[in-house]
Amino acid sequence: MRYAMAIDTKKCVGCSDCVVACQTENNVPIGYCRDWVIEATTGTYPDLSLEFRSERCNHCSNAPCVRCCPTEASHVVNGGIVLVDHNECIGCKACIESCPYDARFVHPEGYVDKCTFCIHRVEKGENPACVNVCPTKCMYFGDTDDSNSEISKILKKRKWKTLIPEAGTDPNIYYLI
C-alpha cells in the first residue's frame, strides 16, 4: 500500500480552504499550518500563466527526515505515511533542516509537527480533511499501489509532476498539470 495525493493545478483556485480545514480538523494552532498554498505567475501582461499549488508533507518514500531523526520519533507507518511520535520527539529540529519542502514546524508544545495525511480519518476509510473540503474537488487521495484506485487512474490519464524530484526524496504528492 502506498498512500499518495494528486492535486489538479488546472482546477485549484488557491482559496486555502485546505489550509483552514486542516487547522480546524487537526487543532493546528493559530499561526501554524500543516499545508499551505503557493501562487506562481509567469509571463508578461497579457501573456500570462498562473499555477496554484496546495503543498504539504510529501510523505516521501525516501524520507530524509526519518533517516536523520535520532530518536525514531519520525517514522513510517503502513501505507508509507510519515509520522512524528510526539512522545519520542526531543525537538532537535534535525528533521526540519532535512526536509527540502519545509513541511515541518515546531509545535508550540515543543514537538515537531506536520501533515499526518489525516491518518485518523484515513484509518476509518475517510479522505483527509483537506481533500474532503476542497471546493474545486481538485484533490485526490488514495493508494497508488492499487491500480484500480481513483488516484492511480488519474495519474495514468493525466500529465503530472512532483516537486523537486532531484532532491531524491521520492515524493508522493503529485501535481496534475
Binding site: 480552504d17 483552514v20 474532503n132
Partner: peptide, 12 residues
C-alpha cells in the same frame, strides 16, 4: 455539496 468554502470552514 458537503464542502464549505474557506470562509465557511473558518467560520468558527
Amino acid at each position: 455539496n458537503g464542502r464549505l468554502c474557506p470562509r465557511g470552514t473558518g467560520g468558527v
